[in-house]
């Protein structure tokens, strides 16, 4: 029997909590005042599951992801990895966290070092942390990693430079690099949005295999709800607006039966690749199209200036709490919808 090339990693069981964000806040101090980019976010990433973060540009998706990856230290709240607060980890714990949680950036044209070969990029971490004995072993491992992300035959890619690869191939190299450390959590920040449709699907299918076969947990950030639906069907979607989560729940519920007016607007805004459906679809009309500045947030619910359900005195006075709707599995932060549901339930 051939010796297993990569020491059989102990993969966490599907559903195990890997990464937990509690009350995470990130405020940037600038000359123009404080910018509360993330204002209290709770999220859980589980092994073999996808948590999808959706929202418009500037809603705090990337800032949240960076805090989750330990790339920034949140101004408040905690990030826990396998139960321990990552800000208090010792050197060894910190290294384990760094290895287990990996970040895949949006732009594969900017995230790879142009003067390093694929081999060098993919094995940098392995060599740095002494996980390989010699060059031969490093090359074997690199080849395996490339095969895992469907860059085959791997031998023909090892000595290539990024400029010799297409966008999709580069993104696969970035994923192989992230997997090199037997990572348990992948944080994918719009990692497929710059790619052509067909390449995007094949990459999503590759990521899906990692999720199902290696129980990799995903924090998947996208502005594309159709991609969220496809990739996170068995997982959860969290919708962010101006630094807060406004609705969160199992993907089929959020996509098929959105409750927050913002989620409804996002879903109805998607251009359907189906002419009859596109014609029949009615887009939710918002009262305002521009997203407010984080330095001048509206009072109460920050969505109220754009919200079609806006009610004076209710929505512009207090921020709605994110709470379970109808005691189910969905979290919602909306005064009006929550009240209507309560009344319907009582009546």
């Amino acid at each position: 029997m051939p010796e297993p090339r990569i020491p059989a990693p102990r993969r966490p069981e599907a559903g195990t909590t890997l990464l937990e964000l509690t009350g995470v806040e990130q405020t940037f101090h600038t000359k123009r005042g404080d910018v509360p980019a993330v204002a209290g976010v709770d999220l859980t990433v589980r092994a073999g599951k996808v948590l999808c973060l959706v929202g418009e540009s500037g809603c705090g998706k990337t800032t949240t992801a960076r805090a989750a990856a330990g790339l920034t230290r949140p101004t408040a709240g905690t990030v826990r990895f396998r139960g321990s607060d990552v800000s208090t980890l010792d050197a060894k714990g910190r290294q384990e966290f760094r290895e287990a949680v990996q970040y895949i950036h949006q732009d594969p044209y900017a995230s790879l070092n142009p003067v390093r070969t694929v081999y060098s990029t993919v094995t940098a971490g392995l060599r740095r942390h002494g996980h390989v004995r010699d060059r031969a072993e490093a090359r074997r491992k690199a080849a395996e990693l490339l095969e895992r992300v469907d860059l085959t035959p791997a031998e023909s890619y090892l000595d290539k430079y990024p400029h010799q690869l297409s966008g999709g191939q580069r993104q696969r190299v970035a994923i192989a690099r992230a997997l090199a450390m037997d990572s348990e959590v992948l944080i994918a920040d719009e990692s497929t949005s710059m790619l052509d449709v067909s390449i995007r699907v094949s990459l999503l299918n590759t990521l899906g295999r990692l999720r199902d076969q290696l129980n990799v947990g995903f924090l998947f950030i996208t502005h594309d709800l159709a991609v969220a639906k496809y990739f996170a069907w068995d997982g959860d979607i969290a919708v962010m607006y101006l630094g807060r989560i406004v609705e969160q729940g199992p993907t089929p519920q959020i996509i098929n039966d959105p409750q927050h007016p913002y989620t409804k607007a996002l879903i109805s805004a998607v251009c359907e690749p189906d002419p009859r459906l596109a014609r029949a679809k009615k887009a939710v009309r918002l009262r305002g199209s521009e997203i407010p500045s984080l330095t001048e947030l509206p009072n109460g619910c920050t969505f109220h200036p754009r919200c079609p359900l806006f009610e004076a005195d209710t929505c512009d006075s207090a921020a709605p709490p994110l709470s379970l709707l109808d005691g189910g599995t969905r979290l919602l932060a909306c005064h009006v919808v929550a009240r209507d549901h309560e009344q319907a339930g009582v009546g």
Binding site: S198, R200, V201, V227, Y230, V270, L277
Partner: peptide, 30 residues
Amino acid sequence: VFYEPRHPYTVGLIKAVPPVVGDLPELSSI
């Protein structure tokens, strides 16, 4: 073109795009 594509490339493109509303079809790449 969307309902009765007759070129395999067009078929491939359409099969790679997920819809938001309705059933979730299997997606495949070219």
